[in-house]
């Protein structure tokens, strides 16, 4: 059995390494009975098309932000919500398809409404804010144009930070930052480095406002078409890779801070006076106002050990 596995990650990103290594691990774990043909870098289409492709079955597997599944189950975006995880390990525990009550409830809806299910996850690092000036508190961002991923959740979050959410496509982001169309953006350090945003941005505020966890999803018909022991082997392989992705991300974050500092970026942290608490308060208040339906899931997520 060969499954087509698509994702949008570029060469050098943690998610690209994850997909390549997961394909090897799954082939080994199933004695070659199941193999993945990985299509990175949007080869089989952009995010929306990839999700629709998995739903339809033209692609069997893929991974992306949980929020990309919100087009089928709107509450899935809750796993991308800012300031709900204590750290990376908590984020992985709270998105474990085997044990997370919130994910299990929403996964059932995903199977029901979209014919697809989440079977694994990837930890891709914490998201931080980069900008053309120093940021210590939300007031520093007040009324300034910041790039928002064009999804409701991000727009709400950027608003909660006090800035003006401005939609910019990821391919236009470096140019938009260079010309000043937007003065800042937020992403994991791995993305800031891979896309050379240090050429157009001077500061990074280490807010860690979001833990970037990506969902690994599969077409449910294709999934049910596998043998029980094959499914177990795949789940176990993905779980092991998820734990490894956390190690990769944590190891690389320290290196990336050094690398980006060398490239000329200035980091602000809680130690240098970054007011994390006012970010947390502002953002959570805005999210609560805009997404009251997330409440019960956020409680469940926060309760996970």
């Amino acid at each position: 059995e060969t499954l087509r596995y698509a994702h949008v990650g570029a060469e050098g990103d943690i998610q690209t390494r994850f997909a390549a290594e997961a394909a090897e691990a799954i082939e080994a774990a199933t004695d070659g009975e199941v193999s993945l043909q990985v299509f990175p870098a949007s080869q089989l289409g952009n995010v929306a098309e990839m999700v629709d492709g998995v739903r339809m079955g033209s692609i069997q597997m893929g991974h992306h932000d949980f929020a990309s599944l919100a087009r089928i189950v709107p509450e899935m975006a809750v796993f991308n919500a800012p300031f709900i995880y204590r750290d990376g390990a908590h984020a992985l525990a709270a998105t474990d398809p085997e044990t997370s009550p919130a994910l299990q409830a929403l996964n059932a809806e995903l199977v029901e409404n979209g014919g697809m299910r989440v079977i694994g996850r990837i930890y891709r690092g914490a998201r931080h804010i980069s900008s053309n000036f120093e940021i210590d508190e939300p007031a520093d961002m007040e009324g300034k144009p910041f790039r928002a991923v064009p999804l409701d959740l991000w727009i709400s979050m950027i608003k909660g930070m006090g800035a003006t959410p401005t939609p910019v496509e990821v391919s236009e982001l470096p140019t938009a930052l260079m010309t000043g169309l937007v003065v800042g953006q937020e992403n994991p350090l791995t993305m800031i480095s891979a896309n050379k945003l240090y050429e157009v941005q001077s500061h990074v505020a280490m807010t860690g406002h979001m833990q970037s966890v990506l969902a690994v999803f599969v077409n449910d018909d294709a999934w049910q078409g596998l043998e029980e022991d094959q499914r177990e082997a795949i789940t176990a392989a993905l779980d092991e890779k998820a734990a490894q992705s956390l190690e990769w991300a944590q190891a690389s974050e320290a290196d990336l801070v050094d690398e980006l500092t060398e490239a000329g970026m200035t980091f602000t942290t809680a130690e240098t006076g970054l007011d994390l608490e006012s970010f947390r308060t502002g953002v959570l208040a805005q999210i609560e106002a805009d997404f009251p339906e997330y409440g019960e899931y956020i409680e469940q997520i926060m309760a996970v050990e």
């Binding site: 570029a10 060469e11 050098g12 391919s171 236009e172 470096p174 050379k196 050429e199 157009v200």
Partner: peptide, 12 residues
């Protein structure tokens, strides 16, 4: 710009 984003090469 497309090339730069695919290969992570500096667009500037």
């Amino acid at each position: 710009i497309v090339y730069g984003s695919v290969t992570s090469v500096s667009i500037i």
